[in-house]
Structure formats: C-alpha cells, structure tokens
Design a protein around this nucleic acid. Structure first.
Lengths: 136, 136
DNA sequence: AGTTAATTCTACTAAATTAGTATAGTTTTA
DNA sequence: TAAAACTATACTAATTTAGTAGAATTAACT
C-alpha cells in the first residue's frame, strides 16, 4: 500500500497541474482543497521542491509551482522520490538493489522471480504515465 | 515493499512444492534451510494452514504439507492472505475496497486512476502465476 | 526607509501504527 | 516420553503521520 505521503504528493502535483496559470499556490490552499494536514503537506512539497519537481517563492504572494510541463513529469520518478523503490523486494530493484541476507541463491528464488515480473510491469506503467496523463 | 512475512511465506511454500513427496516437513527444517527465525515462520505457516493452503500433522513425525497441487495454488490468493490488498490504494482495491476520507470525488482522483492501472496489471500477473510456475 | 504581515523553511518532538522477534507454555501423537 | 504443532502474550525497533516553535524571506503599506 502507498503511504499517505505518496498519495498526498501525487494529489498536490495534480492540483498544481490543473491550474490554468503557473503562479505560486500556497500550501494552505492545496491542503484545504485536498483535506491534507497542512504541516504534513508542507514537508511533502519541500521534498518535491528539493527533488526538482517544484519551485517555491517565499514571502507574501509566495507558494509552490510546477517547474516543468506536466507532460514531462514521469510518474515513475515521482513514485521513487515519494515512496521509494518500485520493486516489491530489494533484490528485484534496479535503482535500490540490495541482496537478501536470507537468500542463498538468487537465481532459484521463486519470490524474486515473481516480484521481478511484477516490477517490470509496474515500472512500464509508471514510466508511460506523465503527470499530464493522469491529471487530465 | 513486501513484508518479510510475505517473502518468507512464499519461500516456505516453494520449499514444500519442491519436495518430491508430500510428507510433513517440520518448521525447523524449513527455517534452517531458508534462514528464517523459527518462531516467526511458525506463525506464518499457521496462517497458511488456517487459510487452506497447508495441512498440519502434530506430534512426532509431524509437520506441514501442501494440501493442493502447486499448479492449483494461485499466487494472487497467497499474496492476499500474506500481504493483504494487491491494490496500492484502498480505493483501487476490489477485495478490500475503502473510500478515502480525504477524497471528494473518486472519478477525478489522479492517484486512484494511476493506481488502478497498476493494480489491474499486478493482479493479472499474480493470477496467471501458480506456485508451480514460480517454483520450477 | 522602516514596519508589518504573509509565506516558505528548518529543527525538534510525539503519537500511532506496524514489523519483527522472543518467551513460556499447552496439546497432540508416534 | 519425546517430538512436534499450537496458543498467547509481551517486548523492541522502525516507520509513518502529525504537531510545535521559530527563523528567514519577501511584498505591501505607511
């Protein structure tokens, strides 16, 4: 299951993408509209900013705004920042690979085999969807 | 990411499936071979027994054994018992559906849209794989 | 120019949940 | 009687979610 962080992050990005213009939107506005705890959302937006998805403007009239076109924002990248590995097992992950210490032989591990197949398909879907694809 | 419960459960089922005969195998044997805490594995096997995947025989010479043919054990069902919902959001789940309390309108929720697509594909894979498919 | 209000940013804390492990026994059966 | 599954519970650690307090920045107003 996705963490709320990821769900909220996706909803916030969607909210920004659906805006006509790309002027800064305040955290409070997004939080209210999407029913998200304002402080929790604050940390999520900050993460998305530090990861290069959002820009921020401080002070009066400030807020967050998309830094790229929605069609150029890959949901796979968003997922990796917010949720972490796409694979369901560390040993089936490209970007976050780790060997299982309980596993003698990866080649014959049935769990790995199955989860690799799941991973490949999930990745394909997340990579083929941009923010624009899911927002509109 | 999968919980260890699920990973260990799949590995234990695989271990049993790879056995030539279907005689009871003791927890300790599986635990040792797969490097799993014996007590943790105990609770997992118990769950799999109570869910109709395994039979158990008590006392000397006892142990756990598969109650069905590996080819008749759906990994989707195994996954649901061990890990829970296949969907990444409760609102995108068939078997464990729950409305999000933060969501005004499911129809326009981008997160739901995306996660439903992921779910459909993951489900297809898990349903098309039996224990026999991944063990051999 | 200086003050004020609105806003992001930073750091710390805390509550709640979940995962994983450990302990101590009871029951069943060869 | 010994070997095994079964039951119950309690503990620890990690993670997630959220809250608190204040610093830094900026725009607008006087």
């Amino acid at each position: 299951m996705l963490s709320k962080k990821t769900k909220y992050g996706i909803k916030a990005l969607t909210y920004l993408a659906r805006r006509e213009n790309n002027e800064p939107v305040q955290i409070a506005e997004i939080a209210k509209s999407e029913h998200i705890s304002i402080k929790f959302l604050e940390s999520i937006l900050l993460l998305l900013r530090n990861s290069g998805f959002l820009g921020a403007k401080k002070g009066k009239g400030g807020g967050y705004y998309l830094i790229k076109e929605p069609k150029d924002i890959s949901m796979a990248k968003v997922y990796r920042i917010l949720e972490g590995p796409i694979a369901l097992l560390p040993c089936a992950s490209h970007n976050f690979y780790e060997k299982c210490d309980d596993c003698d032989d990866e080649a014959t591990c049935a769990a790995r085999r199955l989860m690799t197949e799941v991973r490949d398909n999930t990745l394909k879907i997340l990579e083929s969807n941009s923010l624009a694809d899911i927002a509109f």
